[in-house]
């Protein structure tokens, strides 16, 4: 559905020819797949997202979105409709004076009849639990609600994939739970692919696949229970595993016999309790 082939990107204007922001990326994202993208600051995560929705075009290689190459300028709006982007700070992407107008913004640019716009806005608003907020000005909403409005605006365009760049970095814990649950539900129920950039392994443990970037290269990828249990690799890149994995590794050194692919906190709790019953 989305595919990067031998993708490389160099930011223009850098005086010294430094490392490329991305190089040698081959990656296919499948329909309905939830992908978590992790890596240190400057590893190329945001650059990759921008290449996926044609905010940037490849220096080398290609990006294909549903059969369209992102360098095809005639079809660039289609690419952006298929791959909608959610940024870190919701305040930077809400533009209208009411929630309803904000969700409708993209649709209005498609010059659809107003009755159809209205219907689509109401549909996504009810899907995201925003019905009661439609007439509110976006700046009066909580952080989690603002991100949900931003997601609604993207969803109204009926995308295949939603690209999220640290969507919870500015949110309080309730806002983080709100956004993570919402996106998880859309992924399951709407068959929507998700590419979620995050610095928090806890947010990535429910992904279908975890990808780790470092210095512009894809270092490893796989199911979260495999990738996050390679603590040696994560630590060498300055990254951390989820708390359950980190704690389990310490406890194994102390002689606790714990399953090797444990990843969720509840799995660790379960294993420790069954160990206690046995001893």
């Amino acid at each position: 559905m989305i595919e990067a082939r031998n993708l490389a990107y160099y930011y223009p204007g850098e005086e010294e020819v430094s490392l490329p922001a991305l190089s040698g990326i081959n990656l296919a994202v499948h329909r309905g797949e939830y992908l978590a993208l992790l890596g240190p600051n400057g590893s190329g995560k945001t650059t990759l997202l921008k290449l996926f929705n044609a905010l940037l075009t490849p220096s080398e290689g290609e990006v294909w979105v549903k059969g369209i190459s992102t360098v095809d300028e005639d079809k660039i709006t289609e690419v952006r409709r298929y791959c909608g982007m959610i940024f870190q700070n919701p305040d930077n992407q809400l533009v209208a004076t009411t929630v309803e107008e904000d969700i409708a913004f993209g649709l209005e640019n498609l010059a659809l009849p107003s009755a159809e716009i209205k219907k689509k806005v109401l549909d996504v608003a009810s899907l995201l639990g925003l019905d009661h907020l439609l007439q509110q000005p976006p700046h009066l909403l909580s952080g989690g609600e603002k991100q949900r409005v931003a997601i609604a605006g993207v969803l109204a365009m009926q995308p295949l994939c939603i690209l999220m760049d640290e969507p919870t970095a500015m949110l309080d814990p309730a806002g983080r739970r709100d956004v993570i649950e919402t996106v998880g539900r859309l992924n399951r129920e709407q068959d929507l692919a998700v590419i979620h950039v995050t610095h928090f392994p806890e947010e990535a443990v429910f992904a279908d696949r975890v990808i780790i970037l470092n210095q512009g290269s894809l270092v490893t990828q796989g199911p979260p229970e495999i990738v996050f249990n390679d603590l040696k690799l994560l630590h060498s890149l300055g990254l951390q595993g989820p708390a359950a994995v980190e704690l389990a590794a310490l406890l194994r050194k102390d002689g606790f016999d714990l399953p090797s692919q444990l990843i969720h906190s509840r799995e660790l709790v379960h294993s420790l309790c069954s160990w206690e019953r046995k001893s």
């Binding site: 814990p173 309730a174 806002g175 983080r176 704690l247 906190s265 660790l268």
Partner: peptide
């Protein structure tokens, strides 16, 4: 609307 550090959450689970 707040939360706990992940480690504290594990101890609560236990």
């Amino acid at each position: 609307g707040l939360g706990l550090p992940a480690v504290t959450e594990i101890l609560f689970g236990l």
